[in-house]
Design a protein around this nucleic acid. Sequence first.
RNA 1: GGCGCGUUCGUCUAGCGGCCUAGGACGCUGCCCUCUCAAGGCAGAGAUCAGGGGUUCAAAUCCCCUACGCGCCA
Length: 490
Amino acid sequence: MSVRTRFAPSPTGFLHIGGARTALFCWLFARHHKAAFILRIEDTDEVRSTRESVDAILHSMNWLGLDWDEGPLLTKRDEGWDEKGSHGPYFQMKRTEHYKRYVKQLIDEGKAYPCYCTAEDIDAMRKLAESEKRNYRYDRRCRNLTADERKAREAQGKKFSVRFKMPEDGETVVDDGIRGQVHFDNKLRQDLVIQKTSGVPTYNFANVIDDHMMEVTHVVRGDEHLNNTPEQQQIYSALGFTPPKFAHLSMILGPDGAKLSKRHGATSVLEYRDQGFLPETMRNYLALLGWSTPESQQLFTQEELVAKFGLEGCQKNPATFDNAKLLWMNGEYIRTSTVDRLLEQAKPFLEKAELGSVDRKVLSTAVKLEQEKAKLLSDIPGLVEFFFREPNYDPKAVDKVLKAPGADKVVEELAVFLEKVEPFTEKSLEDAIRKFCEDTGRKTGQVFHPIRVAVSGKTTGPTLFGMLELLGKATVVARLKSAQKLCVQA
RNA sequence: GGCGCGUUCGUCUAGCGGCCUAGGACGCUGCCCUCUCAAGGCAGAGAUCAGGGGUUCAAAUCCCCUACGCGCCA
């Protein structure tokens, strides 16, 4: 049988880092096994589900390069999303008839039952248990009602939820792909609600029906679902379905050890994009959060990731998200990226800095000169800006370098000297300026630094002569001249 | 509170009974390279493997208990 797997997010918010990590692992698992990868939207939370969230999830996955074989299409139309795949629909709210059918089947077979207890009833039971210092567990008072008793309640117009009958003894063993066998004592389990009074199925039920109907063979999901798995497995067998293989991923924690959340700063995938991270960085970094190879390899191409990924390498304990390492990795990817790709990825940032329509060739060379310094795509505009407009003189740089003794003379003399350098290229500039140092008896540092600051406004920057060449003679000379007034000591 | 999961450098991790005086990566420190900044190279600090009991000739690795963290249910 062919392998099929899925990612099944609830559209109750943007795709956060934890969700993205789960999506990535599902996707890697699928691609590694050449399996079908399904994207299913679990929108049964009528209150919190939004269309914006669906959109955000779709676009986040698309940005990360996680493509799916079945599920909603990326672009939304007025009436919703078109879908692809033969096992749809892929929105749970479009599948309610199936859930109802199976709920009915379970009731008819005596494997589930209507429960007429109201929220108040449940609350009272809970309070009582608390006052008696007992653990609350639904007392199953509706489990064995006779047909007449049910009729009577319905005649009173009582609404009901539907509960699944858990076995009263024995144990349920979950054979987890990451954790191994996990044993659960059936006695201690609840009769899970599978359909709410609204008629909408609960997560744990819809999930089972869909995974079965979509012929999912492997479920890779977050740790928070491990505790629901015994109930789900019992539902599978009550329905005569073969359960899929489960694998539960550990959680991702914030720097303080608590589950990663909004108060830790950026948590949405798209926020990382907007900060200037490359999708390949996110993919690579997230893959390393809870997964590793025996060699502890750090950097992977997309293909390597797919080829090497496996559940064996997955960590059981939660991982803390580390921004410093993420940043390092992004620098790594920026450095090894082609300039063209960088330009394309940095486009929104360049446009924002009004460098969107600047000479492409100059920009390309400027980016190449500065590439190794950028940690974020959003660093790029600031690094190349001075090639296109008058520099912002950093006061510290001016104080330290231009106001240094003798700097004024250097700047003044060079404005004249560089006028004569021909051709105005990196190589001949270096030769000429070095010779200038020699002839005037100056150390190279005494000359190089003032030029740099006069021309770029900063003490840091790319290789001096390459920078001068790109700037061009006219600009260089003009800036040296205008910088002379900055050299005057107060 | 019950149940479940987890615990190796600050962080991500390697390790599946002897190769461990615990390896790699990020970060940190220093040196080298050098026109600055980066990048790169080299070196270094950093983990009594949560604690305690076993099992074994031998345990980070197997078993038990405790502590702590997290999750689910309530």
